[in-house]
Amino acid sequence: MGPLIVYENITQNTNLFFAFLIGIGFGFVLEASGFSSSRKLAGQFYGYDTTVIKVFFTAAITAGIGLLIFGLFGWIDLDLIYINPYYKWSTIVGGMIMGAGFILGGFCPGTSFTGVAIGKIDAMIFVGGLLLGILIFTEGYPIFEGLYMAAYKGTPRVSSMMGISDGLFLLGLVIVAFGMFYVAEWAEKKFPLKEGSK
């Protein structure tokens, strides 16, 4: 039964080895899907290439449904998986700062590493920026601390907050995702990248 780290008593070093293997799969899929290209990533914000939305939402519903099924069959103890804590204001403000970083820099942290892996100099500079930005946070922590720790809400899950089952919520999420895929396919035809046309 999963998580294996808890129920099968795999050692810490074995767990780190699995982390390495999972990372290889993660990096391979990101690169193979085109996430090593900032111009492809930025395309989602202008409609000319909506790969990110399709990959991101397909991955989220695949993993979500997978966890639901694993839980129903008793293959994984869902009480033992990590749920990120929700601090309302730092999540909102942090998300906004990340969004600004995304549209200016063209990468997010995970994708920038796949850019580095295939020789993108702009990705290497982005990673340099990440190091600097995180250093600004760790050095300036007393300044950020108030916002960082404010409005702690525990580890709420949207389905329980709405008072519905995980399965029903996931069904809704799948429907929303398919609606977004439809809009994404439409946008790619509507807003092609007009390059060399001038």
Binding site: G94, G95, I97, M98, A100, P109, I125, L130, I134
Partner: peptide, 12 residues
Amino acid sequence: GGILFGIGSQLG
């Protein structure tokens, strides 16, 4: 963009 993402990811 990297600097902003670095700060934002820590807050978030």
